[in-house]
Design a protein around this nucleic acid. Structure first.
Lengths: 224, 224
DNA sequence: ACCTGAACACCGTTCAAGT
DNA sequence: ACCTGAACACCGTTCAAGT
Protein backbone atom coordinates (compact mmCIF):
# COMPACT_ATOMS: atom_id res chain seq x y z
CA UNK A 1 0.00 0.00 0.00
CA UNK A 2 1.22 3.54 -0.77
CA UNK A 3 3.17 4.17 -3.93
CA UNK A 4 6.84 4.88 -3.75
CA UNK A 5 7.74 8.11 -5.52
CA UNK A 6 10.41 6.91 -7.84
CA UNK A 7 10.34 9.63 -10.42
CA UNK A 8 10.90 12.53 -8.15
CA UNK A 9 14.35 11.57 -7.03
CA UNK A 10 15.69 9.98 -10.18
CA UNK A 11 14.25 12.18 -12.89
CA UNK A 12 13.15 15.55 -11.62
CA UNK A 13 15.54 16.03 -8.72
CA UNK A 14 13.63 19.03 -7.34
CA UNK A 15 15.87 22.11 -7.13
CA UNK A 16 16.97 22.78 -3.56
CA UNK A 17 14.76 24.98 -1.42
CA UNK A 18 15.64 28.56 -0.56
CA UNK A 19 14.40 31.14 1.90
CA UNK A 20 12.68 33.02 -0.91
CA UNK A 21 10.84 29.89 -2.03
CA UNK A 22 9.61 29.25 1.50
CA UNK A 23 8.41 32.85 1.87
CA UNK A 24 6.72 32.79 -1.55
CA UNK A 25 4.86 29.58 -0.70
CA UNK A 26 3.80 31.07 2.63
CA UNK A 27 2.41 34.17 0.91
CA UNK A 28 0.46 32.11 -1.62
CA UNK A 29 -0.96 30.11 1.27
CA UNK A 30 -1.89 33.22 3.26
CA UNK A 31 -3.59 34.82 0.25
CA UNK A 32 -5.74 31.70 -0.07
CA UNK A 33 -6.39 30.73 3.52
CA UNK A 34 -5.48 33.70 5.72
CA UNK A 35 -2.72 33.97 8.28
CA UNK A 36 -4.00 30.98 10.22
CA UNK A 37 -3.52 28.83 7.14
CA UNK A 38 0.21 29.49 7.19
CA UNK A 39 1.55 26.50 9.10
CA UNK A 40 5.03 25.12 8.67
CA UNK A 41 3.48 21.83 7.69
CA UNK A 42 1.24 23.41 5.06
CA UNK A 43 4.10 25.44 3.57
CA UNK A 44 6.18 22.27 3.37
CA UNK A 45 3.38 20.30 1.73
CA UNK A 46 3.03 22.99 -0.94
CA UNK A 47 6.75 22.62 -1.67
CA UNK A 48 6.60 18.84 -1.74
CA UNK A 49 8.78 18.46 1.32
CA UNK A 50 8.55 17.62 5.02
CA UNK A 51 8.00 20.42 7.55
CA UNK A 52 11.38 19.90 9.16
CA UNK A 53 13.19 20.69 5.91
CA UNK A 54 12.08 24.30 6.15
CA UNK A 55 14.32 24.83 9.15
CA UNK A 56 17.33 24.58 6.86
CA UNK A 57 16.25 27.88 5.29
CA UNK A 58 14.33 29.81 7.94
CA UNK A 59 14.88 29.87 11.66
CA UNK A 60 11.24 29.80 12.78
CA UNK A 61 7.68 30.64 11.82
CA UNK A 62 8.30 34.22 12.99
CA UNK A 63 11.16 34.39 10.53
CA UNK A 64 8.76 33.36 7.75
CA UNK A 65 6.35 36.13 8.77
CA UNK A 66 9.24 38.64 8.71
CA UNK A 67 9.99 37.56 5.16
CA UNK A 68 6.35 37.77 4.11
CA UNK A 69 5.99 41.33 5.39
CA UNK A 70 9.20 42.46 3.71
CA UNK A 71 7.95 40.93 0.48
CA UNK A 72 4.73 42.96 0.68
CA UNK A 73 6.74 46.14 1.29
CA UNK A 74 8.63 45.20 -1.87
CA UNK A 75 5.36 45.38 -3.83
CA UNK A 76 4.73 48.99 -2.81
CA UNK A 77 5.80 51.74 -5.20
CA UNK A 78 8.41 54.00 -3.64
CA UNK A 79 7.45 57.69 -3.48
CA UNK A 80 9.50 59.93 -5.75
CA UNK A 81 11.39 62.87 -4.22
CA UNK A 82 11.05 64.89 -7.37
CA UNK A 83 7.31 65.52 -7.44
CA UNK A 84 5.06 67.54 -5.16
CA UNK A 85 5.23 65.89 -1.73
CA UNK A 86 1.45 65.76 -1.32
CA UNK A 87 1.08 63.94 -4.61
CA UNK A 88 3.92 61.57 -3.66
CA UNK A 89 2.21 60.77 -0.34
CA UNK A 90 -1.14 60.25 -2.06
CA UNK A 91 0.35 57.84 -4.60
CA UNK A 92 2.23 55.94 -1.92
CA UNK A 93 -0.89 55.61 0.24
CA UNK A 94 -2.83 54.25 -2.75
CA UNK A 95 -0.05 51.74 -3.41
CA UNK A 96 -0.01 50.56 0.22
CA UNK A 97 -3.78 50.23 0.22
CA UNK A 98 -3.69 48.22 -3.02
CA UNK A 99 -0.98 45.90 -1.69
CA UNK A 100 -2.96 45.26 1.49
CA UNK A 101 -6.05 44.55 -0.57
CA UNK A 102 -4.08 41.83 -2.35
CA UNK A 103 -2.76 40.51 0.98
CA UNK A 104 -5.45 40.97 3.63
CA UNK A 105 -3.46 39.05 6.23
CA UNK A 106 -0.69 41.67 6.15
CA UNK A 107 -2.54 44.69 7.65
CA UNK A 108 -1.91 43.83 11.27
CA UNK A 109 1.61 42.61 10.57
CA UNK A 110 3.24 45.44 8.62
CA UNK A 111 4.04 47.59 11.63
CA UNK A 112 4.60 44.80 14.10
CA UNK A 113 7.87 43.27 12.87
CA UNK A 114 10.86 43.81 15.08
CA UNK A 115 13.32 42.88 12.33
CA UNK A 116 12.59 45.06 9.29
CA UNK A 117 13.95 43.63 6.03
CA UNK A 118 15.68 45.55 3.24
CA UNK A 119 12.48 46.36 1.31
CA UNK A 120 10.94 47.73 4.51
CA UNK A 121 13.95 49.93 5.23
CA UNK A 122 14.08 51.15 1.63
CA UNK A 123 10.38 52.03 1.82
CA UNK A 124 10.69 54.00 5.04
CA UNK A 125 13.79 55.75 3.76
CA UNK A 126 12.04 56.80 0.56
CA UNK A 127 9.01 58.18 2.42
CA UNK A 128 11.23 60.26 4.68
CA UNK A 129 13.23 61.35 1.65
CA UNK A 130 10.14 62.59 -0.18
CA UNK A 131 9.07 64.61 2.84
CA UNK A 132 12.56 66.08 3.38
CA UNK A 133 12.69 67.03 -0.29
CA UNK A 134 9.32 68.73 0.19
CA UNK A 135 10.85 71.04 2.79
CA UNK A 136 10.08 69.23 6.04
CA UNK A 137 12.59 69.30 8.90
CA UNK A 138 13.62 65.94 10.33
CA UNK A 139 11.25 66.27 13.28
CA UNK A 140 8.34 67.44 11.11
CA UNK A 141 8.96 64.66 8.59
CA UNK A 142 8.70 62.08 11.37
CA UNK A 143 5.54 63.76 12.60
CA UNK A 144 3.97 63.77 9.13
CA UNK A 145 5.00 60.15 8.53
CA UNK A 146 3.38 59.09 11.81
CA UNK A 147 0.10 60.90 11.19
CA UNK A 148 -0.22 59.66 7.61
CA UNK A 149 0.61 56.05 8.43
CA UNK A 150 -1.67 56.03 11.46
CA UNK A 151 -4.57 57.10 9.28
CA UNK A 152 -3.56 54.81 6.43
CA UNK A 153 -3.20 51.61 8.42
CA UNK A 154 -6.12 52.39 10.71
CA UNK A 155 -8.42 53.00 7.75
CA UNK A 156 -7.40 49.86 5.92
CA UNK A 157 -7.70 47.85 9.14
CA UNK A 158 -11.33 48.91 9.44
CA UNK A 159 -12.03 48.60 5.75
CA UNK A 160 -10.77 45.04 5.43
CA UNK A 161 -12.46 43.78 8.58
CA UNK A 162 -15.95 44.82 7.58
CA UNK A 163 -18.08 42.13 5.97
CA UNK A 164 -18.78 43.77 2.63
CA UNK A 165 -16.89 45.23 -0.29
CA UNK A 166 -19.15 47.57 -2.25
CA UNK A 167 -21.97 50.07 -1.76
CA UNK A 168 -24.68 47.57 -2.66
CA UNK A 169 -23.51 44.97 -0.19
CA UNK A 170 -23.17 47.75 2.35
CA UNK A 171 -26.84 48.55 2.01
CA UNK A 172 -27.84 44.93 2.43
CA UNK A 173 -25.63 44.39 5.48
CA UNK A 174 -26.85 47.62 7.06
CA UNK A 175 -30.43 46.50 6.58
CA UNK A 176 -29.68 43.15 8.19
CA UNK A 177 -28.00 44.68 11.23
CA UNK A 178 -30.70 47.29 11.62
CA UNK A 179 -33.37 44.58 11.72
CA UNK A 180 -31.59 42.72 14.54
CA UNK A 181 -30.95 45.82 16.62
CA UNK A 182 -33.18 46.84 19.52
CA UNK A 183 -34.03 50.15 17.90
CA UNK A 184 -34.60 52.37 20.92
CA UNK A 185 -31.44 51.22 22.71
CA UNK A 186 -29.08 52.56 20.06
CA UNK A 187 -30.87 55.49 18.40
CA UNK A 188 -27.83 57.03 16.67
CA UNK A 189 -26.63 53.72 15.31
CA UNK A 190 -30.12 52.96 14.06
CA UNK A 191 -30.31 56.36 12.42
CA UNK A 192 -27.06 55.74 10.54
CA UNK A 193 -28.10 52.28 9.43
CA UNK A 194 -31.53 53.32 8.14
CA UNK A 195 -30.00 56.32 6.36
CA UNK A 196 -27.54 54.11 4.52
CA UNK A 197 -30.13 51.46 3.83
CA UNK A 198 -32.23 54.07 2.07
CA UNK A 199 -29.32 55.65 0.22
CA UNK A 200 -26.51 53.09 0.00
CA UNK A 201 -23.88 55.30 -1.61
CA UNK A 202 -21.16 54.74 0.92
CA UNK A 203 -17.91 54.37 -1.02
CA UNK A 204 -14.71 53.35 0.71
CA UNK A 205 -12.41 54.73 -1.97
CA UNK A 206 -13.77 58.27 -1.83
CA UNK A 207 -14.10 58.15 1.96
CA UNK A 208 -10.41 57.21 2.11
CA UNK A 209 -9.39 60.05 -0.21
CA UNK A 210 -11.46 62.56 1.72
CA UNK A 211 -9.78 61.81 5.03
CA UNK A 212 -6.33 61.64 3.49
CA UNK A 213 -6.75 64.99 1.73
CA UNK A 214 -7.88 66.51 5.00
CA UNK A 215 -4.69 65.32 6.70
CA UNK A 216 -2.37 66.27 3.84
CA UNK A 217 -3.87 69.77 3.70
CA UNK A 218 -3.41 70.21 7.44
CA UNK A 219 0.25 69.23 7.19
CA UNK A 220 2.76 71.87 6.16
CA UNK A 221 6.52 71.90 5.66
CA UNK A 222 8.42 74.11 8.09
CA UNK A 223 9.01 77.62 6.77
CA UNK A 224 12.61 78.41 6.00
CA UNK B 1 0.35 7.52 41.78
CA UNK B 2 -1.40 10.92 41.44
CA UNK B 3 -3.51 12.19 44.31
CA UNK B 4 -7.25 12.10 44.05
CA UNK B 5 -8.81 15.48 44.69
CA UNK B 6 -11.26 14.66 47.38
CA UNK B 7 -11.82 18.08 48.92
CA UNK B 8 -12.90 19.89 45.83
CA UNK B 9 -16.06 17.97 45.30
CA UNK B 10 -17.09 17.38 48.88
CA UNK B 11 -16.16 20.65 50.57
CA UNK B 12 -15.69 23.52 48.14
CA UNK B 13 -18.13 22.57 45.37
CA UNK B 14 -16.86 25.24 42.96
CA UNK B 15 -19.66 27.54 41.78
CA UNK B 16 -20.76 26.69 38.25
CA UNK B 17 -18.95 28.40 35.38
CA UNK B 18 -20.49 31.19 33.34
CA UNK B 19 -19.69 32.91 30.08
CA UNK B 20 -18.46 35.96 31.97
CA UNK B 21 -16.08 33.87 34.04
CA UNK B 22 -14.65 32.26 30.93
CA UNK B 23 -14.15 35.65 29.26
CA UNK B 24 -12.60 37.16 32.42
CA UNK B 25 -10.13 34.28 32.70
CA UNK B 26 -9.26 34.65 29.01
CA UNK B 27 -8.56 38.38 29.46
CA UNK B 28 -6.34 37.78 32.48
CA UNK B 29 -4.45 35.20 30.45
CA UNK B 30 -4.08 37.52 27.44
CA UNK B 31 -2.83 40.38 29.62
CA UNK B 32 -0.13 38.07 30.95
CA UNK B 33 0.82 36.04 27.90
CA UNK B 34 -0.58 37.80 24.83
CA UNK B 35 -3.25 36.57 22.45
CA UNK B 36 -1.31 33.42 21.65
CA UNK B 37 -1.49 32.45 25.32
CA UNK B 38 -5.27 32.30 25.16
CA UNK B 39 -5.93 28.62 24.49
CA UNK B 40 -9.08 26.85 25.53
CA UNK B 41 -6.95 24.46 27.56
CA UNK B 42 -5.16 27.30 29.37
CA UNK B 43 -8.41 29.12 30.15
CA UNK B 44 -9.84 25.89 31.53
CA UNK B 45 -6.76 25.21 33.66
CA UNK B 46 -7.04 28.69 35.18
CA UNK B 47 -10.64 27.91 36.12
CA UNK B 48 -9.77 24.48 37.55
CA UNK B 49 -11.71 22.64 34.89
CA UNK B 50 -11.19 20.59 31.71
CA UNK B 51 -11.12 22.36 28.34
CA UNK B 52 -14.27 20.64 27.16
CA UNK B 53 -16.30 22.17 29.98
CA UNK B 54 -15.93 25.61 28.43
CA UNK B 55 -18.13 24.59 25.53
CA UNK B 56 -21.10 24.58 27.86
CA UNK B 57 -20.75 28.37 28.12
CA UNK B 58 -19.14 29.55 24.89
CA UNK B 59 -19.57 28.18 21.42
CA UNK B 60 -15.96 28.43 20.25
CA UNK B 61 -12.65 30.23 20.72
CA UNK B 62 -13.92 32.96 18.38
CA UNK B 63 -16.85 33.43 20.73
CA UNK B 64 -14.39 33.95 23.60
CA UNK B 65 -12.54 36.59 21.56
CA UNK B 66 -15.86 38.34 20.85
CA UNK B 67 -16.51 38.46 24.58
CA UNK B 68 -13.03 39.75 25.35
CA UNK B 69 -13.33 42.62 22.88
CA UNK B 70 -16.76 43.61 24.16
CA UNK B 71 -15.36 43.62 27.67
CA UNK B 72 -12.59 46.03 26.64
CA UNK B 73 -15.18 48.31 25.02
CA UNK B 74 -16.93 48.22 28.38
CA UNK B 75 -13.85 49.73 30.02
CA UNK B 76 -13.92 52.78 27.75
CA UNK B 77 -15.59 55.93 29.05
CA UNK B 78 -18.54 56.93 26.88
CA UNK B 79 -18.32 60.42 25.37
CA UNK B 80 -20.85 62.88 26.78
CA UNK B 81 -23.22 64.61 24.37
CA UNK B 82 -23.40 67.68 26.58
CA UNK B 83 -19.86 69.01 26.27
CA UNK B 84 -17.97 70.47 23.34
CA UNK B 85 -17.67 67.71 20.73
CA UNK B 86 -13.93 68.20 20.26
CA UNK B 87 -13.33 67.77 23.98
CA UNK B 88 -15.61 64.73 24.03
CA UNK B 89 -13.65 63.15 21.15
CA UNK B 90 -10.34 63.95 22.81
CA UNK B 91 -11.42 62.36 26.10
CA UNK B 92 -12.79 59.30 24.35
CA UNK B 93 -9.60 58.84 22.34
CA UNK B 94 -7.53 59.03 25.51
CA UNK B 95 -9.79 56.44 27.14
CA UNK B 96 -9.46 54.06 24.18
CA UNK B 97 -5.70 54.50 24.17
CA UNK B 98 -5.51 53.80 27.91
CA UNK B 99 -7.66 50.67 27.58
CA UNK B 100 -5.48 49.35 24.77
CA UNK B 101 -2.39 50.04 26.84
CA UNK B 102 -3.85 47.80 29.54
CA UNK B 103 -4.75 45.15 26.96
CA UNK B 104 -2.11 45.17 24.22
CA UNK B 105 -3.59 42.09 22.57
CA UNK B 106 -6.82 43.98 21.80
CA UNK B 107 -5.55 46.57 19.26
CA UNK B 108 -5.86 44.35 16.22
CA UNK B 109 -9.10 42.81 17.43
CA UNK B 110 -11.33 45.77 18.31
CA UNK B 111 -12.43 46.50 14.76
CA UNK B 112 -12.35 42.96 13.47
CA UNK B 113 -15.30 41.37 15.28
CA UNK B 114 -18.25 40.49 13.13
CA UNK B 115 -20.58 40.12 16.12
CA UNK B 116 -20.40 43.33 18.16
CA UNK B 117 -21.56 42.92 21.76
CA UNK B 118 -23.75 45.32 23.75
CA UNK B 119 -20.85 47.38 25.14
CA UNK B 120 -19.47 47.79 21.62
CA UNK B 121 -22.84 48.95 20.27
CA UNK B 122 -23.33 51.32 23.20
CA UNK B 123 -19.89 52.78 22.57
CA UNK B 124 -20.45 53.37 18.86
CA UNK B 125 -23.88 54.81 19.55
CA UNK B 126 -22.47 57.26 22.09
CA UNK B 127 -19.71 58.46 19.75
CA UNK B 128 -22.23 59.10 16.99
CA UNK B 129 -24.50 60.79 19.51
CA UNK B 130 -21.78 63.19 20.66
CA UNK B 131 -21.03 64.18 17.07
CA UNK B 132 -24.71 64.61 16.18
CA UNK B 133 -25.16 66.77 19.27
CA UNK B 134 -22.18 68.83 18.08
CA UNK B 135 -24.05 69.70 14.89
CA UNK B 136 -22.82 67.03 12.47
CA UNK B 137 -25.19 65.59 9.89
CA UNK B 138 -25.50 61.81 9.77
CA UNK B 139 -23.12 61.53 6.82
CA UNK B 140 -20.60 63.93 8.32
CA UNK B 141 -20.74 62.18 11.68
CA UNK B 142 -19.87 58.88 9.99
CA UNK B 143 -17.06 60.60 8.12
CA UNK B 144 -15.64 62.14 11.31
CA UNK B 145 -15.95 58.84 13.18
CA UNK B 146 -14.04 57.03 10.45
CA UNK B 147 -11.21 59.57 10.27
CA UNK B 148 -10.79 59.76 14.04
CA UNK B 149 -10.85 56.01 14.59
CA UNK B 150 -8.51 55.35 11.68
CA UNK B 151 -5.95 57.69 13.22
CA UNK B 152 -6.59 56.43 16.75
CA UNK B 153 -6.25 52.71 16.05
CA UNK B 154 -3.46 53.20 13.52
CA UNK B 155 -1.43 55.28 15.97
CA UNK B 156 -1.87 52.85 18.85
CA UNK B 157 -1.07 49.92 16.55
CA UNK B 158 2.30 51.49 15.74
CA UNK B 159 2.90 52.67 19.29
CA UNK B 160 2.36 49.29 20.89
CA UNK B 161 4.37 47.34 18.35
CA UNK B 162 7.56 49.33 18.78
CA UNK B 163 10.10 47.84 21.19
CA UNK B 164 10.33 50.67 23.69
CA UNK B 165 8.09 52.67 25.98
CA UNK B 166 9.80 55.95 26.88
CA UNK B 167 12.10 58.63 25.41
CA UNK B 168 15.21 57.20 27.08
CA UNK B 169 14.64 53.71 25.71
CA UNK B 170 13.88 55.28 22.37
CA UNK B 171 17.32 56.85 22.29
CA UNK B 172 19.00 53.58 23.13
CA UNK B 173 17.05 51.58 20.57
CA UNK B 174 17.66 54.22 17.91
CA UNK B 175 21.38 54.07 18.60
CA UNK B 176 21.36 50.28 18.31
CA UNK B 177 19.51 50.25 15.01
CA UNK B 178 21.67 53.04 13.63
CA UNK B 179 24.81 51.05 14.39
CA UNK B 180 23.55 48.00 12.49
CA UNK B 181 22.38 49.95 9.47
CA UNK B 182 24.45 50.28 6.30
CA UNK B 183 24.60 54.05 6.61
CA UNK B 184 24.82 55.13 2.99
CA UNK B 185 22.02 52.81 1.81
CA UNK B 186 19.34 54.55 3.90
CA UNK B 187 20.46 58.17 4.34
CA UNK B 188 17.12 59.59 5.53
CA UNK B 189 16.53 56.82 8.00
CA UNK B 190 20.06 57.25 9.33
CA UNK B 191 19.52 60.98 9.63
CA UNK B 192 16.39 60.46 11.73
CA UNK B 193 18.04 57.89 13.97
CA UNK B 194 21.15 59.98 14.68
CA UNK B 195 19.01 63.07 15.32
CA UNK B 196 16.94 61.19 17.92
CA UNK B 197 19.99 59.53 19.40
CA UNK B 198 21.45 62.96 20.06
CA UNK B 199 18.24 64.48 21.33
CA UNK B 200 15.96 61.67 22.57
CA UNK B 201 12.92 63.75 23.37
CA UNK B 202 10.44 61.83 21.28
CA UNK B 203 7.27 61.53 23.34
CA UNK B 204 4.41 59.35 22.21
CA UNK B 205 1.78 61.09 24.29
CA UNK B 206 2.42 64.55 22.86
CA UNK B 207 2.89 63.16 19.34
CA UNK B 208 -0.52 61.52 19.66
CA UNK B 209 -2.17 64.73 20.87
CA UNK B 210 -0.56 66.74 18.08
CA UNK B 211 -1.94 64.54 15.32
CA UNK B 212 -5.33 64.26 16.96
CA UNK B 213 -5.65 68.03 17.38
CA UNK B 214 -4.74 68.47 13.74
CA UNK B 215 -7.54 66.15 12.71
CA UNK B 216 -10.11 67.58 15.12
CA UNK B 217 -9.35 71.12 13.93
CA UNK B 218 -9.74 70.08 10.31
CA UNK B 219 -13.16 68.55 11.03
CA UNK B 220 -16.17 70.83 11.14
CA UNK B 221 -19.88 70.30 11.73
CA UNK B 222 -22.09 71.08 8.74
CA UNK B 223 -23.40 74.63 8.71
CA UNK B 224 -27.10 75.00 9.27
C1' DA C 1 -27.56 20.85 33.83
C1' DC C 2 -22.99 20.55 33.89
C1' DC C 3 -18.54 18.21 33.62
C1' DT C 4 -15.25 14.67 31.75
C1' DG C 5 -12.21 10.84 29.10
C1' DA C 6 -11.01 9.50 25.06
C1' DA C 7 -10.30 10.51 20.58
C1' DC C 8 -9.41 13.06 16.07
C1' DA C 9 -6.94 15.92 13.30
C1' DC C 10 -4.02 19.21 13.82
C1' DC C 11 0.25 22.61 15.59
C1' DG C 12 5.95 24.30 16.02
C1' DT C 13 10.23 22.54 16.92
C1' DT C 14 14.36 19.37 18.26
C1' DC C 15 17.40 15.80 17.37
C1' DA C 16 19.73 12.04 15.69
C1' DA C 17 19.99 9.65 11.56
C1' DG C 18 20.24 9.15 6.76
C1' DT C 19 22.12 10.45 1.79
C1' DA D 1 24.59 20.31 2.42
C1' DC D 2 20.18 19.13 2.65
C1' DC D 3 16.29 16.19 3.87
C1' DT D 4 13.67 12.99 6.99
C1' DG D 5 11.35 9.84 10.94
C1' DA D 6 10.25 9.82 15.24
C1' DA D 7 9.18 12.21 19.09
C1' DC D 8 7.67 15.99 22.42
C1' DA D 9 4.58 19.11 24.05
C1' DC D 10 1.13 21.37 22.49
C1' DC D 11 -3.64 23.02 19.80
C1' DG D 12 -9.58 23.29 18.98
C1' DT D 13 -13.40 20.53 18.95
C1' DT D 14 -16.77 16.37 18.98
C1' DC D 15 -19.08 12.82 21.20
C1' DA D 16 -20.69 9.49 24.20
C1' DA D 17 -20.62 8.73 28.92
C1' DG D 18 -20.94 9.95 33.62
C1' DT D 19 -23.18 12.57 37.85
Amino acid sequence: MGERNIGRHTRAKRPPLSRDMVVAAAIALADEAGETGVSMRAIAARLGVQAMSLYNHVSSREDVLDGMVDSVFGEIDLPASTTDWREAMRDRAASVRAALQRHHWAVGLMDSRRRPGPATLRHHDAVLGALRAGGFSVAMAVHAFTVIDSYLYGFVLQELSLPFTGPVEFGEVAEGIARDLPADAYPNLTEVLTEYTRRPDYDYASEFDLGLSMILNALQPDEA
